[in-house]
Amino acid sequence: MAKPALLHIAKLPVVPDSQEEFESKFEHFYLWDQKDRESFFKEKGSLIKGVVTDTKGWVNEELLQKLPNVEIVSSNSVGLDKVDLNLCKERGIIVTNTPDVLTDCTAETALALLLACMRQIPAADRYVREGRWPTEGDFRFTTKVSGKRVGVVGLGRIGAAIAKRCEGFGCKISYYARSKKSDYPHYSYYSSVVDLAKNSDILIAACALTKETTSIINREVLDALGPEGFVVNIARGPVIDEVELVKALVEKRIAGAGLDVFVNEPEVPKELLDMDNVTLQPHVGSATVETRNDMSRLVMDNLIAHFSGQPVLTPAE
């Protein structure tokens, strides 16, 4: 029996033993190796039974029209904003992602960004490296994190993990979600992001990117947060109105930001590059060796389960 054929539109950072096992079970085609993609799809498109993707690869009507026999899309990510879930459902295509295994690392990143932007750690580091300490004296005062009011936009797995870590700093936790979470009675719930921002010193975006959450943090929300408020985004760039965020920072209508994601990655608004109260990262929230290997393993296990006639481990919710 022929091995199931997979189309990789994203690379998996797998450990060698896992890669050997994975390669032995499937026939693999790599989109980036196809110099003539049109010819490739005409010749091989009907053979493809599974797609491997991540946060960068689009799985949309344009692609799926060329792959009429796809049964499963396995994404090396939690967010699925690049996958047309409705179309996959219509075609009976199973979609899987990699929840849980990246929760800790992404929550750590949120806390790192929060501390870095509020305490201006990158700027202080540059101050020392540039030799300014002996000549210009002590570094300026910054803002402490402990005891602040933290508002989390999206209290899913990652949002809850961030909130738990912020509790360790003695922070009061509030959140916005589609509905009140009975598992967190000690957190304050707001049905409006504006109201959440009014009652927060720090606003952390941890929601999935959907039509409803696009620009959910807008000018009104930023103004409600106010000139002493900080924003952290480890969700997706478009959940914040980036133009309004830049304006708010330039005009000092908010105090600072820690950003792991952007609207037009890898492009970053140039106004942010010289701001000491802004910490920037190149979308590396889950980018540790341990987590990326665990994610890759889960991508592979979902595919192996499906083509072995077993239920997938982590179907998209």
Score class of each variant (00 low, 15 high):
residue 5 A to V: 14
residue 90 E to W: 12
residue 149 R to F: 04
residue 263 V to R: 01
residue 150 V to S: 10
residue 250 V to Q: 15
residue 224 A to R: 10
residue 130 E to L: 06
residue 235 A to D: 06
residue 307 F to G: 00
residue 192 S to H: 12
residue 129 R to Y: 06
residue 177 A to T: 13
residue 1 M to T: 15
residue 161 A to T: 14
residue 1 M to C: 02
residue 11 K to P: 12
residue 191 S to K: 13
residue 118 M to N: 00
residue 281 Q to E: 09
residue 117 C to L: 00
residue 259 L to Q: 02
residue 264 N to C: 04
residue 236 R to S: 03
residue 116 A to W: 02
residue 106 T to Y: 10
residue 97 N to I: 05
residue 55 T to S: 12
residue 96 T to F: 08
residue 193 V to L: 08
residue 90 E to S: 14
residue 240 I to Q: 10
residue 264 N to A: 03
residue 157 R to D: 06
residue 54 D to I: 05
residue 116 A to Q: 02
residue 116 A to E: 00
residue 50 G to H: 08
residue 68 P to F: 07
residue 104 D to K: 13
residue 301 D to Y: 10
residue 274 D to Q: 12
residue 68 P to D: 08
residue 170 G to K: 06
residue 179 S to L: 11
residue 36 D to C: 09
residue 106 T to K: 13
residue 16 P to H: 07
residue 198 K to E: 11
residue 115 L to N: 01
residue 246 V to Y: 09
residue 311 P to M: 02
residue 179 S to Y: 05
residue 17 D to I: 11
residue 97 N to M: 00
residue 89 K to P: 00
residue 233 N to G: 12
residue 274 D to C: 07
residue 139 F to R: 12
residue 38 E to W: 05
residue 6 L to A: 00
residue 287 A to V: 14
residue 66 K to P: 08
residue 22 F to Y: 10
residue 270 K to F: 12
residue 92 G to D: 04
residue 82 K to D: 05
residue 259 L to S: 03
residue 247 K to Y: 15
residue 174 S to R: 09
residue 23 E to S: 14
residue 222 L to T: 11
residue 244 E to C: 02
